[in-house]
């Protein structure tokens, strides 16, 4: 078992077109680092110096991680991480 990470269309260039990839870790950051090891470039699209990028929403089991610890949000085997680009503009 591992954590499933759902990849939005625009980031599938980093995953060879895969809609979902597997990662291990007990926090969101660990999972992202683990996925980054196999899909380099992905992390930079999700994370900046101060945490998650404003342009992306990340959910662990349907919980928006901005309310559950951000990159420190706990993850466990069987969890599902969904990454959605913010839909926004001016």
């Amino acid at each position: 078992m591992a954590v499933e990470v759902r990849i939005p269309t625009i980031l599938r260039t980093f995953t060879g077109g895969e809609k979902a990839v597997q990662g291990d870790g007990s926090t969101l950051l660990q999972v992202i680092d683990d996925v980054e090891a196999r899909h380099p470039g992905l992390k930079d699209r999700l994370v900046e110096a101060n945490g998650l990028r404003r342009f992306v929403n990340v959910y662990v089991n349907d919980e928006d991680v901005r309310f559950t610890g951000g990159l420190g949000a706990p993850t466990a085997d069987g969890d599902v991480v969904v990454v959605l680009p913010a839909v926004a503009g001016g």
Binding site: N57, D62, R66, V82, L84, A86, V87, A88, G89, G90
Partner: peptide, 19 residues
């Protein structure tokens, strides 16, 4: 954002749509 110059989908509503 309920703004005359900006919009942003509500993240929880967007997740529901994604599902």
């Amino acid at each position: 954002d309920r703004s005359p110059t900006f919009f942003r989908f509500d993240p929880s509503e967007q997740l529901k749509l994604y599902r």
